[in-house]
Design a protein around this nucleic acid. Structure first.
Lengths: 211, 211
DNA sequence: TTGCACACTTTACACCGTTAACCTATGTTT
DNA sequence: AAACATAGGTTAACGGTGTAAAGTGTGCAA
């Protein structure tokens, strides 16, 4: 028989439904509020049925983890349009920042929570982080191009790239954790506390602009 | 009777014992592995007895949170010896980095985990974060002094200070989460992956050195 | 002696991730 | 057709979590 089987893989069908339910719960209520039991009841199956398709909770979350990197890289795609290296670097930072704010839970899963990282360590297939590494390579290349225009003098490309990433991650994660707002709101340090992240980002650009 | 009562405040005595047990468990096994039941059994009381002295788990953890800030500020004390503003800034960064590495769990509790922050928001006594804000003021002052020597040109002190803190926090938290090592080890980007954090720190100093 | 308040325990509830055992419908082999 | 095997679930259970409510014993005051 050569006809396409309707129910070729009902299994994979349920796997998708599980992931969809997990994503919906995760994006609505965050990591910890997304339990195996809730995922299961959302699609009307028993909690243990999930274990037929995923090894454990961290495996489910890892699937979302990968989705996040795909999303981020999709956003980075527009950077190909930006010719000037330094402008590209700035745009990259802005996209990164926007992604983190608009997809806070994804960001936490990708860069802050340790569970997906532990999954990678335990099940040791590194190809899953390829999307992440790919983005980092793009950053290094952009930094390298900036150096040819006189930026980041006396620096190594990979070190400068890591520095930029660190600064952006630090800024963004302090915003997401509430520490940034806590500091900027309680005392009269920042004239416009609401724009603390934006202003700090500008400050980074100013610092990097020096040649 | 004017004699000193032996059991003047057995209550506060037990409160201390609870905190000691919590600290020991926390520093040995981390936040999540420190449960109310384990704390209780460590000192031979029932789990619910803790609730006579602390509102909930986040309250207990908040006590350790405060300890962490006290510890960090103690380390910062030596900075008074450093006269040169820029040298002081560098030393501040190094101390911050060392503190994070040597007291990873404290650092997570202070700057990454959201539970202690939620406690502050819910129980709204801001004086607890004073130690944290104090440290940030010290950073602003140091940055301001650096500016008088020509550093951080075209920047606002509070913005530059926030930038420095963001960069340090980003660097340190990516180290603690394992992301930094993951990136630097898997591919041959960094010649000496083990010193990735140190080298990125140096890169920050190089960037800040420009006047 | 009675009564009461304090300090703590016991019990209980509603969750959690995960394992092991069980069921049942479908399809295949004998 | 009858027996069997397997896929694709289920139910029950274990050991854990934070926390609320009710119960208990002891010391002290009236």
């Amino acid at each position: 028989m050569v006809t396409v089987k309707k129910t070729d893989r009902p299994a994979e069908d349920l796997k998708k439904k599980i992931l969809e339910a997990a994503r919906e719960l995760f994006l609505k209520h965050g990591y910890e509020a997304t339990s195996m039991r809730k995922i299961a009841s959302a699609i009307g199956i028993s909690p243990t049925a999930i274990y037929l398709y995923y090894m454990d909770k961290s495996d489910v979350m890892h699937a979302l983890h990968s989705e996040g990197f795909f999303l981020l890289n999709s956003r980075f795609a527009v950077l190909a349009q930006v010719e000037s290296p330094f402008e590209r670097l700035k745009a990259m930072g802005r996209i990164y920042m926007q992604f983190a704010v608009e997809n806070a839970d994804y960001y936490r899963l990708m860069f802050i929570l340790k569970e997906p990282m532990e999954y990678l360590d335990n099940h040791c297939h590194d190809e899953d982080w390829d999307e992440g590494e790919q983005a980092f390579y793009a950053l290094i290349n952009t930094v390298e191009a900036c150096m040819q225009e006189g930026y980041f003098k006396d620096q190594q490309p990979h070190e400068a790239a890591m520095l930029v990433w660190s600064a952006m991650h630090g800024l963004v994660s302090m915003h997401l954790s509430g520490h940034l707002e806590h500091i900027t709101h309680t005392k009269n340090i920042f004239p416009q506390p609401d724009q603390a992240m934006e202003q700090t980002f500008q400050s980074l650009i100013t610092l990097m602009s020096k040649r």
